[in-house]
């Protein structure tokens, strides 16, 4: 039902015409146990999105290998659900149609699938919004619909690429717990990429820290809060200690690195 993820010595190099090749990730080894929840944090441009896309089969590796379950990843797979930074709902479909679209594409839309999506919409607080169009919903509700679309597929692996980055703090916290609950129930192997250190610690069973250029893993921290978590976790002294520990990796990044990054942004 759920699958483990195994990344071996993965490297991705982007070559662009008229520019030096950029090594996005280098020598990345990562194992995620079946049904686990792993958060990945790192500065922008550290290749964490590239790593996630590679696991999802959206990005070819330059060298190394990735396996989900027993199968090597050579392209997108139906058993892997991707959730993007934006809700990426289609504006010409209602919320329900959007959530049912994966099944429609896979020719497996049946009563059971409809019931599952209906229940997920209900749980996501969107029960009465199924017939609305995306633009009629707030950003947070759209992102929740996008979670429903991803979970409706009953995936074995869930890949989340900064799914809550665009939300306000209140909605974000709510969504964190929604996601955690859904994960705890579905038991799907989950990889979450985030900019937010508290979010990473709050949700992950492990937190992976990546450094930038080339992106590689510099720390792997066990988060010992168990599968059932509530807002109280954030008041635990251990929580502060862990976030401080994760943050210490970025404090080392001196000012020049930050200036360099800003220069990169301007040029982009």
């Amino acid at each position: 039902m759920t699958e483990r993820i195994e990344v071996r010595d993965a490297e991705v190099v982007f070559t662009r015409k008229g520019a030096d090749p950029v090594t996005a990730i280098h020598g990345v080894d990562l194992e995620v146990e079946a049904g686990g929840f792993v958060s990945i944090v790192g500065p922008s441009g550290c290749g964490k999105t590239t790593l996630l896309r590679a696991i999802g089969g959206l990005q070819d590796l330059s060298s190394g290998s990735i396996a989900v379950g027993d199968q090597e990843v050579i392209g997108p797979q139906r058993s892997i659900s991707f959730m993007f930074q934006q809700p990426t709902l289609l504006p010409w479909m209602t919320i329900e149609q959007n959530c049912l679209m994966p099944a429609r594409l896979h020719h497996r839309l049946d009563e059971q699938y409809r019931r599952r999506v209906g229940a997920l919409l209900e749980r996501a607080g969107l029960g009465t919004f199924g017939t609305k169009y995306p633009k009629e919903l707030s950003g947070g509700m759209q992102q929740r619909a996008s979670i429903v679309r991803a979970l409706g597929q009953d995936p074995e692996v869930l890949l989340l690429d900064e799914p809550f980055g665009a939300l306000d703090a209140m909605t974000r916290e709510q969504m964190n717990f929604d996601l955690h609950q859904m994960w705890a129930r579905a038991g799907v192997t989950t990889l979450l990429i985030t900019h937010s250190i508290p979010e990473a610690v709050l949700l992950g069973e492990r937190v992976i820290v990546m450094s930038s250029r080339p992106g590689r893993i510099i720390d792997d921290i066990e988060i010992p809060f168990g599968r059932e978590r509530s807002a109280d976790v954030m008041n635990d002294p251990e929580f502060s200690r862990l976030t401080a520990h994760v943050r210490s990796h970025f404090a080392k990044d001196d000012e020049t690195a930050r200036v360099k990054e800003r220069g990169q942004l301007v040029r982009d």
């Binding site: 999802g56 959206l58 139906r78 010409w92 896979h106």
Partner: peptide, 24 residues
Amino acid sequence: PARLDLFKSLCASRWQVWRRLLLP
């Protein structure tokens, strides 16, 4: 492009990408 990624991640056929994404 984010929507194209979505369809790619869902293993949509080229025909499905045309009908359900590119045309609209």
